[in-house]
């Protein structure tokens, strides 16, 4: 746009440097994860394992039973995201109905939920979960983010793009609301369902404050909390003697794998979302 060859070259160099800045610490962690226990503790620049080793991963899975929090997170993520997407699309479907009496009122409620920072209601929410006997259950983590105003509004935007004539035609044919929802609306908004789902996958996978507050039982802790105990060398696990740097790095690498596998899809939908956001602004 500026049409200047020299500036374009500087831009390339700047972005290359910035990419190194993003990648270098990450690369360092991967190299540490595949080093031996001893090598990982030695001072020095570590960008390639001196001796390739999976000792760290063995400790992680055999002695620290890292698979258990991983399985818990998978459980919460799979079931939680499924329910979240379903409820968000039900909400979005209702909110997308033109001329629905009271729509402004409902929109008001949904917008209001978005304005309340979760930290402010953290303590009363803890009491609510206690009263429902949900503390120390994985169900609490599914309930905690069952549906969100953000996802409902996102789904509404997708539903609103469906031509109104299609809805009227289905109504004239005698289709009920449920039939219209499942047979007409959902199949036409697959990209929307995927976007809302991917957002929620990342949110559930990274969930931190809620499992921190709601879950005490070591059998039920989630990945991020287990990772926290290892990274912060939480002595409550009485395993700090075996947690060498390669174990810490190994845990980070294991936690990164699902994100990296999902990344191409996430990037496709998220970056599109960010572009759309900018256009609206």
């Amino acid at each position: 746009m500026l049409n200047d060859k020299k500036f374009s070259l500087y831009s390339l160099i700047l972005m290359a440097l910035m990419s190194v800045m993003m990648l270098l610490p990450l690369w360092n962690v991967i190299a540490t994860a595949f080093s031996t226990n001893l090598d990982s503790m030695k001072p020095g620049l570590l960008l390639w394992p001196e001796t390739f080793s999976v000792e760290g991963f063995e400790v992680l899975f055999n002695r620290l039973e890292f698979w258990r929090p991983f399985a818990n997170t998978m459980f919460v993520t799979v079931i939680g995201v499924f329910l979240h997407v379903f409820l968000a699309s039900v909400g979005g479907y209702v909110m997308a109905q033109p001329n629905l009496p009271g729509k402004h009122f409902l929109t008001g409620i949904i917008l209001l939920t978005l304005t309340i920072p979760s930290q402010i209601i953290m303590v009363p929410l803890f009491i609510v979960f206690k009263d429902f006997h949900l503390l120390n259950t994985l169900t609490s983590l599914i309930v905690a983010e069952l549906v969100s105003g953000f996802s409902i509004l996102l789904m509404r935007n997708y539903f609103e793009q469906i031509p109104h004539s299609l809805l009227e035609a289905a109504r004239i044919d005698g289709a009920s609301n449920l039939t219209i929802f499942f047979k007409v609306y959902l199949p036409l908004t697959i990209p929307g369902l995927i976007t809302v789902g991917l957002f929620d996958v990342v949110r559930k996978y990274n969930m931190f404050v809620k499992p921190l507050i709601f879950i005490n039982d070591p059998e039920k802790i989630t990945l991020q909390i287990a990772l926290k105990s290892i990274v912060m060398l939480d002595n409550s696990t009485s395993s700090s003697d075996i947690v060498t740097n390669n174990v810490v790095a190994g845990a980070i690498v294991v936690a990164l794998v699902p994100l990296v596998l999902f990344y191409p899809y996430i990037q496709k939908f998220f970056i599109k979302g960010a572009h759309a956001g900018a256009e609206k602004g």
């Binding site: 610490p25 990342v202 996978y205 990274n206 931190f208 990274v231 936690a255 994100l259």
Partner: peptide, 10 residues
């Protein structure tokens, strides 16, 4: 996309 635990760990 990284959680804060991962960021701080890295």
């Amino acid at each position: 996309l990284f959680s804060w635990v991962i960021i701080i760990g890295i």
